[in-house]
Design a protein around this nucleic acid. Structure first.
Length: 425
RNA sequence: GGAGGGAUGGCAGAGCGGUAAUGCAGCGGAUUGCUAAUCCGUCACGGGAUCAAACUCGUGCGGGGGUUCGAGUCCCCCUCCCUCCGCCA
């Protein structure tokens, strides 16, 4: 949600932000509506003022047993004009609201301007992709191990689902536990187990609604399945006034995520890169407005730290203005090296949303000694997508004999095992 | 699933057709002074005015309709919360 006052004050900066998103200038339309709305409001208020005054008078006269017929008729005569002004004011306000809530957030000035991912800028590369004689894709490896079963998943759920078994199932759990332990330990996040089903207002708060319903799953009872734990964890701050001392709040959770992938038909159809259901360890920070810029660096560092611990090569890119998500002002994507694809693929996305979500969900804070409240800033980042991390481990740690080595830091979580062997047949 | 109760400012809490009490917290000020007390003001959002204020008008009692000169209050619809019973991990 955008701040109308800000648009009034700096319409050019607003349009520049929208241009970066590939949108036409919006400020003129918005401000025109704003002027119309205020004009209608002013006319409305003049009539309301007269009505209130007369009504008070009527009350007084009637209380004294007098005749107020003339005044009553006057108020009656105001009705049509008042109703018209009210309708106009309301119509403008609703239109304004629907425009403001459907426009994406304004990118920071240091975000590269561009239409799509081609304009993203790589800012660092960490680690070296391993030399491999014959790299395989994760589904080849997983199926050879006999522990990654797409066929069975299809029979019960259709495409974009997978059944993991045995040590691969455990590897998923091991990865998630390792990530959670790292974030709740060294990184200072508070672990949560949030709801996986939420209502409209929560989805509106983080920006999935009203525009992106087609990406979501919905139940007959009116719940939405969370596409990321960002939704329930960010909404922890919703509709409250916090104390400045409460900030920053840092939450993490390991949850399933549900996405319809409506716009992704035909993409990543093989394997478990793009699933309707996947698990992810998410980080959310609720910060003071002055701290969100540095918090994004911190959060990205936390995500990268997991990859470093796992010994996986990756690169970090800044998304261009056209490639960023709806609510973000700046986003870092972390892409892990997948030998089977000979490509870096997204495994984490860390975003600073500024006050965009906070405004939608009325998440505010108060500072002692200051009057009034301000909106908090919200950030979210994957730390990491567990399914894709599992893929990365399989492809990067596959041995020439077909077995898969287990990274050192995961071995305690795998019952001490140091590799996953091919089945004896 | 059945039966009830409720939603009012940051929080607590009155009001039942005639300008939204009061308390606590916060903010501004005054005063006395010793680990704070007392008093006054302020205390949501929006419009107008202003360099900015003072000022002024309006809206706001979960949301939306209706009745009325006038609705927190009466009527209708919806949402959410709570309690009890039933069922259940």
């Amino acid at each position: 949600m955008h701040d109308l006052k800000l648009i009034r004050e700096t319409p050019d900066a607003f349009d520049k932000g929208m241009a970066g998103r590939g949108l036409q200038p919006q400020a003129a339309t918005i401000l025109d509506l704003d002027v119309k709305r205020r004009d209608a409001q002013t006319r409305m208020q003049v009539m309301q003022s007269r009505r209130n005054e007369a009504s008070k008078e009527i009350g007084k006269i009637k209380g004294q047993g007098g005749d107020a017929t003339a005044l009553i008729e006057e108020v009656q005569s105001l009705k049509d004009g008042l109703a018209a002004a009210e309708a106009e004011e309301r119509e403008c306000a609703e239109t304004l609201q629907s425009i403001l809530e459907s426009l994406p957030n304004i990118p920071f000035d240091d975000v590269p301007v561009g239409a799509d991912e081609d304009a993203n800028v790589e800012i660092r590369r960490v680690g070296t992709p391993p030399e491999m004689k014959e790299a395989q894709q994760h589904f080849e490896i997983g199926e050879a191990l006999g522990q990654m079963d797409f066929e069975t998943a299809v029979t019960m759920s259709g495409a974009r689902f997978v059944l993991l078994k045995g040590q691969l199932a455990r590897l998923e759990r091991a990865l998630a536990c390792f990530m959670l332990d790292t974030h709740t330990g060294a990184n200072g996040y508070t672990e949560t187990v949030p709801p996986y089903l939420v209502r409209d207002n929560a989805m509106y708060g983080t920006g999935q609604l009203p525009k992106f319903t087609e990406d979501l799953f919905h139940t007959d009872e009116g719940f939405w399945l969370i596409p990321t734990a960002e939704v329930p964890m960010t909404n922890i701050a919703a509709d409250r006034i916090w104390e400045a001392d409460d900030l920053p709040m840092r939450f993490t959770a390991w949850t399933p995520c549900f996405r319809s992938e409506a716009g992704a038909a035909g993409r990543d159809t093989r394997g478990m890169i793009r699933m309707h259901q996947f698990s992810k360890v998410e980080m959310v920070s609720i910060t003071h407005p002055d701290k969100s810029v540095e918090e994004l660096e911190r959060m990205t560092d936390c995500a990268e730290g997991i990859l470093k611990s796992l010994g996986l090569a990756f690169r970090t890119v800044v998304l261009s203005t056209g490639d960023m998500g709806f609510g973000a002002r700046k986003t870092y994507d972390i892409e892990v090296w997948l030998p089977g694809q000979e490509a870096y693929r997204e495994i984490s996305s860390c975003s600073n949303c500024g006050d965009f979500q906070a405004r939608r969900m009325k998440a505010r804070f108060r500072t002692p000694g200051e009057k009034g409240t301000r909106f908090v800033h919200t950030l979210n980042g994957s730390g990491l997508a567990v399914g894709r991390t599992l893929i990365a481990v399989l492809e990067n740690y596959r041995q020439e004999d077909g077995s898969v080595a287990i990274p050192d830091v995961l071995q305690p979580y795998m019952g001490g095992a140091d590799r996953i062997e091919l089945p004896n047949r």
